[in-house]
Structure formats: C-alpha cells, structure tokens
C-alpha cells in the first residue's frame, strides 16, 4: 500500500469515528496535526498571547466542518488550510502585511523558469563565502524569522521542515503552484544571502 493510500485509510477511519460521535477520535486528529498547526501559527501570529484563541478557533472550525471533508487531500493538509486561513484572517483584521506587494510579483529575473545561466558576467575571482554548519544551527532560526514578506517564513517551514510538496503547500495557501515555487525560490535565496551577510558582519 502506498503512503498516501495508507494515509487516506487512516484518515477515513478517524473521520468516520468522529462523525459517529466518538470524541476520542478527535483527540487523535489533534495529535496527528498539532505539529503542522503549531508551525503555521508560530510563523503567522507573532503575539504569543493571541495564539491560544487562534488554535482553539482552528480546531473548532475543523470539528464543525468535518462532515464536509471530501478526502480530496490528506486530513492534515485540510486542517493546515484551516489554520492558514484563520491566521491570514487574523493578520488582515490587524492590517498586517503577509504577502508580497503586487508590484513585486513579476520581476522577470526572479520568475521560476529553466534559465540555466545567470545574467551576471562570469568572473573567476569573485567567490562566495562558505557557510559553516557549526554556526548555521544557531543563526538559522533567527534568519528564518527575519525573512520578509512573512509568507516566506511559512513557505520555508512548510517545504523544508514539514517536508510538504509544492502541491500540498499550494492547497494550504490557495496560491498557484507556480507562485509557491517562485516565492520559495526567492525565500531560499534571501535566506542564504542573509546568513552570508551575517557572517561577513561577524568577521569585521
């Protein structure tokens, strides 16, 4: 049985049990998804005191809307989408910027395509400093949290830490898959450059 098929089967059993009124099954749903929900909430809601209400809201919505879950995705992806939308609504209410400004959207250089070579002219002497794995661990968490616009932090977390596919992230964020790839490309580039510039500052 493939991993997705196994997932769907256990999702189906869980959902059936919850719909039958077995609330203990919902405890299992929480345990299976709280890691993902935590990463989304942590990256999107900066005020610690606001988080409990948001988490509660996410799971109450999930419980209420469970009868409409159609198994088109993993249950965890579906709950991830509820978490993302709840946090996005929270940010919008507070007029906090999360997505890139529309003018940034289409810089020709940055569109994810198959261009093999950089526009930058080749110059052998111009090197790039090597990051060291020893210092990386400590600096990385902070570097992720400094990525801007903040959606980059969420995308990096979902792709590299939660190991979700582009398609799953597109489902959660309701962004086209191409946009997810493009944002992730920019986020990784910015992350590497920020880490490198931190190193250079330390050396001075």
């Amino acid at each position: 049985m493939s991993q997705t098929a196994a997932h769907n089967l256990s999702d189906q059993l869980l959902v059936e049990q919850v719909l039958k009124g077995n609330q203990q099954a919902f405890v299992l749903v929480i345990r299976q998804t709280e890691g993902l929900v935590a990463q989304i909430v942590l990256k999107m809601v900066r005020i610690t005191a606001d988080r409990p209400d948001i988490v509660q809201d996410i799971y109450l919505k999930a419980y209420k809307n469970l009868p409409s879950f159609r198994f088109n995705s993993k249950l965890s992806t579906w709950i991830g989408k509820i978490a993302y939308n709840t946090c996005l609504h929270y940010l919008e209410k507070r007029k906090l910027v999360f997505l890139p400004a529309t003018s940034e959207e289409k810089e020709p250089e940055e569109i994810f395509d198959n261009l093999s070579y950089n526009r930058q002219a080749y110059n052998v002497n111009e090197g790039e400093k090597r990051l060291s794995s020893r210092d990386l661990g400590a600096a990385l968490g902070a570097a992720i949290n400094n990525l801007s616009p903040p959606i980059y932090q969420t995308l990096i977390t979902l792709y590299h830490q939660e190991e979700m596919s582009y398609a799953e992230i597109a489902e959660i964020t309701s962004l086209p898959e191409g946009t997810v790839k493009n944002y992730l490309f920019r986020a990784r580039k910015a992350l590497k450059e920020n880490l490198l510039s931190d190193y250079q500052k330390e050396e001075l």
Partner: peptide, 13 residues
C-alpha cells in the same frame, strides 16, 4: 542550508 533546515529544532507552541 537545506540539510540544516531539516534538522533545525522546531519551536513549540
């Protein structure tokens, strides 16, 4: 960077 991202400790809620 990508290897470090996988192993970096996830903060908890």
């Amino acid at each position: 960077l990508f290897t470090a991202l996988k192993t970096v400790e996830k903060p908890s809620l």
